[in-house]
Every structure is written in structure tokens, then in C-alpha cells.
Design a binder for these strands. Structure first.
Length: 828
RNA sequence: GCCCUGGUGGCGGAAUCGGUAGACGCGUUGGACUUAAAAUCCAAUUGGGGCUCAACCUCAGUGCCAGUUCAAGUCUGGCCCAGGGCACCA
């Protein structure tokens, strides 16, 4: 065995062996229990970045650990390869998005292989290939047939920069999630998926996911935004037969309504405006249209509005109050109309103050009864000025008042969600075409399933501005109606890439199926994903959509489970000098350079070493260097011990060793096996796993340093220690351990070995260190026999000279003994 | 404003049940080896104080203030700060 560590040489050699032997292929049939480890698949942007390296290393180590522990592990990889960057690159360089994407995939595949990841490449999934998007289209059609995909005219988010619409989830602070430019509202006819049908179950089933972090679950719950209240209808005084419905969470305050606000885009606003107010209202609405979402949603903006001139009647007390329009009412939430109670709502209060609208206290503030002139009182209290409901606690009043509205026919109990339907059509080329045609005679028609896939056209001009390149195709849009055979027009919108990524994890279970997206038995066998690993940035977008897809496909009978990801690990970001790595900051680290200079094993070791996976990781060049040195140290330890390694004495029995130092080393190995196994099983604490590698290596070095010659027992112990170390390190340092295993004469691959087991009796020190405290303060440490009784320990502690100093002349009130650990003497 | 995380040495971070605070590493300092350097190895490294020096002793210390307990980084209550998410959502 070579004395020096040559990672580049070793890594290349074994990567080829693994690839040639298809070492990481997963068979569907196995007696072993299944384990599905999955990283979020990447967008093929060109090169791997350190975030990818971290993500994939984590999942790889998990997969390898599970495999050594007797699981049949599925660990696949693929490409989320539709999307705008490819199209932009095509426009910029006059190339084709497909070529650009293929080149990137080829390069990144090479990098993944250089990282030594244990993927089953036979299951590779690429969303932009027809054999995949055929099934994305097929699934869209199944949703369509179930009424879960529909087209409607709506106010949608439009990104001018990207030239397309966006889903609500893709608008961050009023800006496009991809290009950061300000999003506008447009009225367009677009395709939606009916995720709102699943709002309640998506919320409720978060409870079924103990393996997800609370942060992600809370973000999803907030996004779904469930609230419970009442829908109340108010008759319009001036227009017989007309009503304005209002959603409120505060039906207890109905007696305090002094005006009502409708959004500027409210559908009946023109009818509700009197001729005298028409001009002012029109102007206000025109202004609202011009304002950007960001301006409009700014909470510190002064609220504005204009009266419509009409009035509503409060059915509870017969009072009349005026109708206004104001842009603090949102057309897309509730009914687009708000009942205003200035005394008990801060927004209504501000508005009423500004326009000198009347206020009426209906919930008593115990500290300041009947006065709401300074600020709105929004806390609980007892009702006043509320007719028959006076004196009732406001929580009870919510129910009682809504019930009265139900009984008298002007209201109902209502649950409202913030979640809106998922807008999936995009006015772009590089996506899965929506498989729909429009026929003048027959209307909207789905493409028959046997005609799938609807292929992307090739005769496209990518240099066009202001419209989707797909519309420049001479052949694509023109088609025939599948019903009447007459002339028809094909849908030119493509699907949001998040549709493609909402089911890819299902496809891995049966990646080559040409007849179906996946066979039901295979998907039911492999899913749900046992461990999903990815960035927190997908907490809402991808993870919510995937949960929706799984539930919808379950209802379609395509699979039998209802949550796709049993356990979710959201890994932290990779930082450099405390800031997120980014090209603009110039603080990126190129994985290729790390592979080149130190090898993949060093990169893998380092990226797992300094922080727990869920936390941010600060990249440091010194840290990489340190890991490289450690691997060299490991290599030297193995190579200098190679001559003593034998495979026949790997099972050493407790208490059979003659020498204490040998016994101690044996114990250290067992302690390491136990600790490392537990740390991986318990939330994948790889940072402490790596500390324990170092502790074990240090222990073996210390032991060796004290031996001048080795006898038979020494050799057996050393052999056991070295082979255990190699196995323990094999999920992380995949190449080094494979080379060492092979050089030492191990059978087969290290990665096919069983994970070492520990003996509970050996996984602890031979003696215990008794902690002696006086009044809770550490005063002495005494080596004690492991089998000492509580009385022995107590006697030992009291006999201590150090303890006597603190107890002399005082009364011992109490002595607490924690077996095998500690004695605390309480004195006065 | 609401929700979720987190706060421990110069730094990254350790610390199953409440039971030795600071594992392991980085950095720094000193030393060995070397003609020299690299590599490697050894030692020290929370702060204050005591001792001629040292081993050693001692006090304080896990964001702040209280509390529970023989014992609190860990449990309870109240606050402060940082990061992230949501938000004119009626």
C-alpha cells in the first residue's frame, strides 16, 4: 500500500469501476426493506455550486448508511430542465434551448460523478425530454378531466422582464421570484390548477408530517391562510334587490358598522355608484389601476378612498351607512367588500379618522369604557350598544350573531382561505406544451391521449420580443379539432416548470415506463420518499405543489398514499465570509477547483464537517485544508498499519484482552461505532460524526505511539480498529475507503459491507470518573470502579481530601448520588 | 403587527434524562525535527484573581432579569437582540 494519499488518482480509478459495474443500481425486487433517499433535483444552469455539493453529499451519505444497514436504497438523480434561463441563453447566443440544456446536463453529470455520488443513473429523469413531458401532459389531462384544471379570465401577475404570467407563489414582495422586476396586474385568460379544492386537507395533513420542520409547516400553514368567520349580506337602500356580501372574522362587531368599503375593482362597483359620484369614483379607480402592487400594498401608506353615494342597511338594527371604495379592500380576498367598524379595527379606524366618518363603540374596553377616540380597541371584551347581544362576551357573540344571520337568511358561517388557485400557463417556449386545442365549433378540447406528447416545435425564432417564441412556429398552432376534424388552434402556452417538478419523484420509481407515468405497484412500493433533502427556498412553492399533486393523483386512483415526503431536511445555505455565495459578490468557490486540488473526499468531508445540515455553513479555505490534512493523516494511519491487518480476528470478545491499553482501544472503537451510528440516525448530525472520526483516529495514533512492538493481541486489536474506521468513514470518504479496503485485501467493495455493530458493554469506558460536588460545585473527580454501589460512591466522595476542606466544620444536610456518575454533598 | 428559528471562547460548533460547560476542528502562541522551508509531531489556548515559577488553588461565566431544584446552557415566567417567513387577508 502506498505511503502517500493521491486522491486524484484513486478517485478516477474507482469512479470508473463503479460506473462500469453499475455498482449503485437499485433493483425493485428485494427481501430488504426499502429506503428512498432523495435530493431536490437541480436546474441544469451550467455548473454545480457548493449548495448542490452540500445537498447531494448529505443525501448520498444517508443512502450509503442505510444501504450498509440492510436497506434496499433508491437514490436517483435527474434534471428540472425546462425553464427560462435556457430560453434566455438561446435568445442571447442564437442557440437552441435544448442544445444549451443538454450541454449543461452533460457537464453537471460529469461533476456529479466526480463527487462520487451513488446514483442509479438508469433511473435518470429529465423533464424537458419528450419521454417525460409526455406524462406531464398526460397528468394535466387527467386533472382537466377531473375538473382540477380550468381556464379563466382573471387578474394575474405579469412579469414584463420574463414576458410571462406568474403564480402567486412566484411573486415575492411584489417582485418576480426569478428576475426581481416589479410585477404588474393584467387581465388575461389563463390555465389554473384547482389547488384551493385541497386547501383544507393540505393544511390539516401537515399534522401527519412529524418528520418536517416546524418552520416549513408554519410557512405552508400561513400561505394557506385559513380563517373562520361569517358571510353577511347587506341590502342596498337605493337599488331594490341588490345586495353586497361581506366576509368578516368579526361578526361580533356588526352593531358598530358605520360604513362599507368595496375594492376599486369590485365587480358591481359601477352599479353602486350614483351619477353625482361617478366622476370621482372613475378617477379613483383609474389611479388605483396605475399604481404598482408594491405601492398599493404598502401598509404605511395613508389610506384613501371616495364615497359611491349609495347606502346599505344593517339588517341587525336597521341603521343606514354609506358605501365607499378604497384600495385597502382587496378584490381577490373574501368578497372584495369589507364592513367597516372603526372602533374595533385599526385600518377602519385610520380611514374613518381621515374622512371624519362616525364611530360607535360596541365592545367595551375594561380599562377605558366607551372611548375609542385615540385608537381602535381590538382586544376581547363584552358587547355594548348591540341590542339583544349586550353583555355577551365577544367570542360567544361571534357565534350568536352569525347564527341569527343564518336564521334570518342574510348570512352564513364561512371558512376563508388565502390560498388561490395555481396559475400554470406560461407564455414561453421552453416548457411542456399544454395539450389543448381550441375549435370554433367544439370549444376547448383536450388532445386525445394517444396523440401525446405534443412536441415542442423546432421552427422557432428565438429573437422575437414581446411574445412567446413558440408563436413564431408556422406549424405548431395550426391543427385540427380532435372532435369534428375541422380547423382548430393549438394552445401555445406551456406549463410552469413547477408542474414538471411536482411529480418527478414519482417517476423515479419507474423511470423507463413507456406506457404510463409510473406503474401503481412500483410507485406504491417506493413512495413516500423516506428522506427528502433540499433548500428552504422551496418551503412553499415546490413542496406545496408536490403535496397537492400527490393528493390529486391519489384521488385519481393513480397511487395509494397521500403525502409524498415522509421526512424533510431543509439544509442551510453555503456562505463564504458570512455572505451567501454569489457571482455578483465574487465570493463563489468552484467545486471543480476543489476536486482538482484536494479531491472529492475532502470536499465531501468538509461540507459535512463544520455545521449541522440544517444550519448555514460558512465555507473557509483553511477548513478545506484541515480536512485534506485529516484524510492524509487517516491514510498514513492505514498504510502504516497495513501489514498488521488481518480479516480473521475482527470479532473481539469483551474481557478477553490481557492488556488494559488494548481493552481501552477496543472500547474506543465501540464507543465510536455507537456514537457515529446514533448521530447519523438522529437528525443526521454529520458534524459530530466527523468529530468522532477524528477522536477515533487520535485514539489509534495515541495507542500506536506507545507500542514499540506488536504482539498477536495488539495486532488483532489494531486490525479491528483500522477495519472499523474504514467502514465508519466509507459513507463520507467514499474513494479513500474503497482504495484502502481493496489494498488491505478486503472482499468486494467497502460500500457493500455491513455497517459495524457495537457491543453495549464495550461501548463505555472501563472505569468511571465520579464527579464530586459540594453544594452543586465541582470539587473533585475520582476514578471509581464501574460496579461500585451507591454507598461505595458516597463513602468514596466523603473520603476525598478535597471534599473535606469544604465540609469540615459544617453539617451535611443531604447527599445525592447519581449512580455511575456523580455525588453531590449538601452542607450548611 | 403576527408566526418560526436562533443567541455558548478569537471563530465554526459540542454537551441523550437537568448532573464535569467549551468535545472536535479552525486560528493563534511556543516547542521538536530540518542547513532551511514544506509536511509531520508535541504542548498551551473562556476571563479575572492568588502562588517566586509551575503543577495547583480560587471567583465569575452559555443574550438580560427573576423563579423552580441538592444541581440549570438545558425547565418555568418576563424581556432584549439577530436571521427568516407572512401581512391593508377584513
Amino acid at each position: 500500500m502506498k505511503e502517500s494519499y493521491y486522491p486524484q488518482e484513486i478517485e478516477k480509478k474507482w469512479q470508473k469501476v463503479w460506473e462500469d459495474n453499475k455498482s449503485f443500481r437499485t433493483e425493485d425486487d428485494s427481501d430488504k426493506p426499502k429506503y428512498y433517499a432523495l435530493s431536490m433535483f437541480p436546474y441544469p444552469s451550467g455548473k454545480l455550486h457548493m449548495g448542490h455539493v452540500r445537498n447531494y453529499t448529505i443525501t448520498d451519505v444517508i443512502g450509503r448508511f442505510k444501504k450498509m444497514n440492510g436497506f434496499n436504497v433508491l437514490h436517483p438523480m435527474g434534471w428540472d430542465s425546462f425553464g427560462l434561463p435556457a430560453e434566455n441563453a438561446a435568445m442571447k447566443h442564437g442557440a437552441n434551448p435544448e442544445t444549451w440544456t443538454d450541454e449543461n446536463i452533460a457537464y453537471m453529470t460529469k461533476q456529479l460523478k466526480m463527487l462520487g455520488l451513488s446514483y442509479d443513473w438508469d433511473r435518470e429523469v429529465t423533464t424537458c425530454k419528450p419521454d417525460y413531458y409526455k406524462w406531464t401532459q398526460w397528468l394535466f389531462l387527467q386533472l382537466y378531466k377531473k375538473g382540477l384544471a380550468y381556464k379563466k379570465e382573471a387578474a394575474v401577475n405579469w412579469c414584463n422582464e420574463c414576458g410571462t404570467v406568474l403564480a402567486n407563489e412566484q411573486v415575492i414582495d411584489g417582485k418576480c421570484w426569478r428576475c426581481d422586476s416589479v410585477v404588474e396586474k393584467k387581465y388575461l385568460s389563463q390555465w389554473f390548477l384547482k389547488i384551493t379544492d385541497y386547501a383544507e386537507v393540505l393544511l390539516k395533513d401537515l399534522d401527519k408530517l412529524p418528520g418536517w420542520g416546524d418552520n416549513v409547516k408554519t410557512m405552508q400553514a400561513n400561505w394557506i391562510g385559513k380563517s373562520q368567520g361569517a358571510l353577511l349580506k347587506f341590502k342596498v337602500k337605493e337599488i331594490p334587490g341588490m345586495e353586497v356580501p361581506v366576509y368578516t372574522t368579526r361578526p361580533d362587531t356588526v352593531y358598530g358598522i358605520t360604513y362599507l368599503v368595496v375594492a376599486p375593482e369590485y365587480k358591481d362597483i359601477e352599479k353602486l355608484t350614483t351619477p353625482e359620484n361617478k366622476a370621482a369614483v372613475e378617477e379613483y379607480r383609474a389611479n388605483a389601476r396605475k399604481m404598482s402592487e408594491i405601492e398599493r400594498l404598502s401598509t404605511d401608506r395613508v389610506k384613501t378612498g371616495v364615497p359611491l353615494g349609495t347606502h346599505c342597511i344593517n339588517p341587525f338594527n336597521g341603521e343606514e351607512f354609506p358605501l365607499w371604495t378604497a384600495d385597502y379592500a382587496l378584490v381577490e380576498y373574501g368578497t372584495g367588500a369589507v364592513m367597516a367598524v372603526p372602533t374595533h379595527d385599526t385600518r377602519d379606524f385610520d380611514f374613518a379618522k381621515k374622512y371624519k366618518l362616525p364611530m360607535k363603540v360596541v365592545i367595551e374596553n375594561p380599562e377605558n369604557p366607551s372611548d375609542c377616540s385615540e385608537e381602535a380597541y381590538v382586544e376581547p371584551g363584552v358587547l355594548v350598544n348591540s341590542g339583544e347581544f349586550n353583555g355577551i362576551n365577544n367570542e360567544d357573540a361571534k357565534k350568536a350573531i352569525t347564527q341569527k344571520a343564518v336564521d334570518e337568511g342574510f348570512g352564513e358561517f364561512k371558512t376563508q382561505y388565502r390560498l388561490r388557485d395555481w396559475l400554470v400557463s406560461r407564455q414561453r417556449y421552453w416548457g411542456a406544451p399544454i395539450p389543448i386545442v381550441y375549435c370554433d365549433k367544439c370549444g376547448i378540447q383536450p388532445i386525445p391521449e394517444d396523440q401525446l406528447p405534443v412536441l415542442l416545435p423546432k421552427d422557432v425564432d428565438f429573437s422575437v420580443v414581446g411574445k412567446s417564441p413558440i408563436t413564431t412556429s408556422k406549424t405548431f398552432a395550426e391543427t385540427t379539432c380532435p372532435i369534428c376534424g375541422g380547423k382548430a388552434r393549438r394552445e401555445t402556452d406551456t406549463m410552469d416548470t413547477f408542474v414538471c417538478s411536482s411529480w418527478y419523484y414519482l417517476r423515479y420509481s419507474d423511470a423507463k415506463n413507456a406506457d404510463m407515468p409510473f406503474a401503481k405497484d412500483k410507485v406504491n412500493h417506493w413512495l413516500p420518499v423516506d428522506q427528502y433533502v433540499g433548500g428552504i427556498e422551496h418551503a412553499i412553492l415546490h413542496l406545496l405543489y408536490s403535496r397537492f399533486f400527490t393528493k390529486a393523483l391519489r384521488d385519481l386512483g393513480l397511487l395509494d398514499f397521500d403525502e409524498p415526503f415522509k421526512n424533510l431536511l431543509t439544509q442551510g445555505m453555503v456562505l463564504k465570509d458570512g455572505a451567501k455565495m454569489s457571482k455578483s459578490k465574487g465570493n463563489t468557490v468552484d467545486p471543480d477547483e476543489i476536486f482538482e486540488n484536494y479531491g472529492a473526499d475532502t470536499a465531501r468531508l468538509f461540507i459535512l464537517s463544520d455545521s449541522p445540515p440544517a444550519r448555514d455553513f460558512d465555507w473557509s479555505d483553511a477548513g478545506v485544508e484541515g480536512c485534506y490534512k485529516f484524510l492524509n493523516r487517516v491514510w498514513r494511519l492505514i498504510s502504516s498499519s497495513a501489514e498488521y491487518v488481518n480479516f480473521s480476528h475482527t470479532e473481539l470478545v469483551a474481557g478477553a484482552l490481557k492488556k488494559k491499553d488494548n481493552d481501552d482501544l477496543l472500547r474506543n472503537v465501540h464507543i465510536a461505532i455507537k456514537g457515529i451510528s446514533n448521530d447519523i440516525s438522529n437528525d443526521f448530525q454529520f458534524n459530530t460524526v466527523i468529530s468522532k472520526y477524528r477522536e477515533l483516529v487520535n485514539a489509534i495514533y495515541d495507542w500506536k505511539g506507545k507500542k514499540s512492538e506488536l504482539d498477536a493481541e495488539d495486532k488483532d486489536v489494531l486490525s479491528f480498529a483500522i477495519l472499523s474506521l474504514i467502514k465508519l468513514m466509507s459513507p463520507v470518504a467514499v474513494h479513500l475507503t474503497e482504495e484502502a479496503w481493496s489494498e488491505l485485501g478486503g472482499q468486494g467493495s467497502i460500500h457493500a459491507q455491513d455497517w459495524p455493530k457495537w457491543d453495549e458493554n464495550l461501548a463505555k469506558a472501563s472505569s468511571i470518573t465520579l464527579i464530586v460536588q459540594v453544594n452543586g460545585k465541582l470539587r473533585d473527580k475520582i476514578e471509581a470502579d464501574e460496579s461500585s454501589s451507591e454507598d461505595d460512591l458516597k463513602a468514596l466522595a466523603l473520603a476525598s481530601e478535597r471534599v473535606k476542606e469544604f465540609t469540615d466544620g459544617k453539617t451535611i444536610v443531604k447527599t445525592i448520588v447519581v449512580p455511575k456518575k456523580l455525588v453531590n454533598i449538601v452542607v450548611k
